[in-house]
Design a protein around this nucleic acid. Structure first.
Lengths: 410, 410
DNA sequence: TCATTTTGTGCAGACGTTGTACAAATACAT
DNA sequence: ATGTATTTGTACAACGTCTGCACAAAATGA
């Protein structure tokens, strides 16, 4: 049984995308793919019969299944309900026949390709190592091969491919402007990936969505991770070299007009600090990425190999009591706080999520960060923005899946 | 005939606000209050009968009127249509019985209170001078008196009051955190204005909306001014002291989680410049507000009187050939460009609108600004963001009206 | 005067949503 | 066991919005 997506998941005959069926599917997705009918009814705050109607639609399309008699555990307690009084609620789940998406995440040293279903569940992942400064064409071939492999072996309809790249990505055509540290000058990423899919009849013409890695990580943390409850979430991360950022505004990913928004690397974190390639001094990128931490710890000898790992070691040493490492962690932590303050003044988030090395830094040295944030930001006088570490292990990959799922949930 | 707003301008029985009637009203509003049916049909791209249906609703409610026989001019050309072939389109206008809103704009030296109707037409304005460091209670009384006066004399139903304040405003309760340069410490603005309305039976309980002046100016320029075509518009302005900003994201005002977003005054414009009250150096606020221009021109003798006017004189002199004034204008212009570059890297707007003194500066000295913007911003490599001067004479006032109208158009 | 073009209207039908009343399924007290 | 309270799912009728089609209306141009 293949799901029927030929007709739009309607709404008013015309152009309404905020109908109950779509909202229901979105609510189920945000709950991780499994929820009771009662929970979904509460999420949508409509009547129970509205849910019946919408649910029937989704079931008929093969997108969800309803278990009317949730399995009783050995003790007799219900699986889905809280165990209260009253008739136990049916359990709604993503159907095993429901469509999947393929997510691709290209990093400096690894390539991840993965299948996701509704709810954000990762079904399978393939990881390959990437050599430094890889060949564009060969990399695209490898992406294409893995996507085809996973899509075919999954034996489920695939409705889209999401690609996460370490580069600003033009929204109109998925062109990657400047893939960071790949020695690539700019590539028409969406078209290149789409061309790879043209070889497989089943995948030809499949929509390909491309996004910036940090933006997608922000999206993922918002939907499934540490920013679930937030509606205006600022995400900042660092991996390898440079700083990436993403913003969720009113529950939606803030992309800017062209898709280049939230290049936070050149926010001032330390006026009069190290000179940056952008011409200014003391940018977040030069003061708080793995290189900066290694430099502060006096360990920046071999420039560009295993930066992130070696920076993590500094944090481990700091936690273990190494005074030099501790000093370095505190210094960088303060710089991060100062940079975040600038962003808070501009963006007024209700939550800040830190990813990559910054998440680990937050655990090892939280005080300098929050102190600097409080001192420097005007809004902190009125609202204390919680700063938390990211919750997902592969946020950009999940975000790429999220991107490919949006047409279904929009 | 008073318009009937008791039932929601429906849509689906439940909670749909994106129905044709509302969309039609919004389209009419954005066209300035007058449009042909054909134009509205195109704006909504639905069938003609859908417009018929929605329009009948709005006419019945007394919100709009339809002129079926648009006046022919002396030459015989139609007023509304382009004069092409075919049946001429009916002319749709905001009804003279339609509701109005009252807009209030409090500045350091003036208080404006004004009536607006749908379409953004200002019906009447009352302006009073405000003494430096005014008494809060007295100022609120004056606001209340003018609002009641205008609302009563307009003889039309009033559906809301919008208030623009030179302060960050908390979204939840309309509390003005720190009214700039008023010597006020923070006031529950919404409640105070609402209390003033309680005296007049006709206005009691009327919704009061409070917003930051720069945010509201941004909103106004987006809907009726220089940012009409933009969907991601950055607005920056300066009046008297300090720098204000606002952002339109995907066609909607970006407020942040609490309403404090876009405090752009402390964006770095000149690393190592003048020390700022925020602790950093070279903030936009210290490098590009009227004081900064006066300082650069060597005319900052008497600190805080008529700053904006005297700064304008500097620009006039610069345009007339005064070398010192010219040098000052060029310097400040470059600083503005550098500050905008930081914002462009973060926010990726498709248009920048400058208001107040910055609009005049843009006319007198555009090159240093655009050069600095191009040099410093990464995105400029890919997209050249147009920078234009504001088009409205009282944008914050119009924005306050816009704020009060949103419940009708949402 | 007639064809062409563009625009408004009437009408029937479809569809999503809701509210109400009722049935089903549990926990808890007796 | 039995009944009551509580919570949840379903059937059904009604409503209101939107659409598409066919037709009428109002202009231009040959």
């Amino acid at each position: 049984m293949t799901p029927d997506l030929s007709t739009p998941i309607s709404g008013t005959p015309g152009n309404d995308s905020a109908n109950n069926a779509t909202r229901l599917l979105t609510a189920l997705h945000r709950r991780g793919g499994t929820a009771t009918r009662a929970e979904l009814t509460a999420d949508l705050d409509s009547g129970r019969s509205a849910i019946s109607y919408a649910l029937a639609d989704l079931v008929e399309r093969g997108l969800v299944t309803v278990d009317e008699r949730p399995q009783q555990t050995a003790t007799g307690a219900m699986a889905g309900t809280g165990g209260g009084r009253g008739r136990p609620s049916h359990l709604v789940s993503v159907a095993p026949t429901s469509p999947i998406v393929i997510a691709v995440h290209l990093r400096v040293d690894t390539l991840d390709v993965s299948a996701f279903e509704l709810g954000g569940t990762m079904l399978r992942i393939e990881r390959e190592a990437v050599e430094p400064s890889p060949d564009v064409e060969m990399t695209m071939h490898r992406i294409g091969r893995l996507v085809r492999l996973i899509a075919e072996e999954s034996r489920r309809p695939c409705i889209g491919v999401g690609v996460s790249l370490p580069s600003p990505v033009r929204a109109t055509d998925g062109y990657a402007l400047a893939p960071r540290h790949m020695n690539w000058s700019g590539i028409p990423a969406r078209d290149l990936v789409a061309a790879e899919l043209a070889d497989a009849p089943a995948l030809r013409g499949l929509p390909v969505h491309v996004g910036n890695d940090a933006n997608l990580a922000a999206l993922a943390e918002h939907v499934h991770g540490a920013g679930k409850e937030a509606r205006n979430m600022l995400f900042v991360t660092t991996e390898h070299i440079g700083i990436g950022g993403g913003l969720i505004s009113s529950g939606r990913l803030f992309t800017g007009a062209s898709g280049y928004a939230m290049e936070v690397g050149h926010t001032t974190a330390n006026p009069g600090g190290e000179p940056c390639r952008c011409g200014a001094r003391g940018c977040l990128e030069t003061e708080a990425d793995p290189r900066a931490l290694l430099r502060a710890a006096g360990r920046l000898d071999t420039p560009t190999t295993g930066l992130e790992y070696r920076a993590r070691v500094v944090l481990v040493d700091a936690a273990a009591g190494d005074p030099v490492a501790r000093e370095a962690a505190d210094t960088v932590s303060g710089r991060v706080g100062a940079g975040l303050a600038v962003l808070v003044n501009l963006l007024d988030p209700d939550r800040i999520v830190l990813g990559g090395l910054l998440a680990r830094l937050l655990v090892v040295a939280p005080e300098p960060l929050s102190n600097a944030l409080h001192e420097r930001s005007f809004l902190e006088r009125a609202v204390a923005v919680p700063v938390v570490a990211a919750a997902l292990s592969a946020p950009a990959l999940v975000g790429a899946a999220e991107l490919a799922l949006t047409p279904l949930l929009a």
